[in-house]
């Protein structure tokens, strides 16, 4: 049980108060720090709003490749297999892994830097590996 507002709303409101009300009162050489704090809060707010769903999607895609296991173990297995050259050759396994890497990257960026994602012009279409 939790009372409202939720984590994302709290962080959003606190960030706006920091940027709008407090930052202009700081000496010029300390204002950059305030923008860093605001950036940290923005990332945390987007992560809180997204919840656990993106990790579950990633976990399911990894389980399709390697079977059951915890997320960290499966990610390690993927990284090791790529390093070993297991997905160098063209074909369905390579395409499947490429799609997964795109999905992971887009999900991470949508939380950590959605502006960069938008500026890059990457569309959802790239998720199916057509890029």
């Amino acid at each position: 049980m939790r009372d409202r507002p939720d984590a994302a709303s709290l962080l959003d409101f606190a960030r706006i108060a920091l940027l709008r009300d407090l930052t202009p009162l700081l000496p010029a050489e300390r204002q950059y720090e305030a923008t860093l704090i605001a950036r940290a809060m923005a990332v945390a707010a987007r992560e809180a709003a997204a919840g656990a769903a993106p990790l579950a999607v990633c976990h399911a895609a990894l389980a399709e490749l390697y079977g059951e296991g915890d997320l960290d173990t499966l990610l390690r297995r993927l990284a090791a297999a790529i390093r070993a050259g297991d997905y160098d050759a063209p074909g369905a396994p390579r395409d499947q892994v490429k799609r997964l890497l795109w999905a992971i990257t887009l999900q991470k960026l949508s939380e950590s830097n959605p502006d960069y994602l938008a500026a890059s012009g990457v569309r959802q279409a790239t998720q199916n590996g057509s890029a």
């Binding site: 860093l36 940290a40 990332v43 990257t105 991470k108 830097n113 994602l117 990457v122 890029a131």
Partner: peptide, 29 residues
């Protein structure tokens, strides 16, 4: 340093560049 800590979330931009640039360059082995 908060700046150092925030760089922990920077790999994603680099990963996007890796995926985009290598896709544009074609998949020829």
């Amino acid at each position: 340093s908060l700046q150092l800590l925030l760089n922990g979330r920077r790999p994603a931009e680099c990963e996007l560049e890796i995926l985009m640039l290598t896709a544009q360059a074609g998949e020829a082995v």
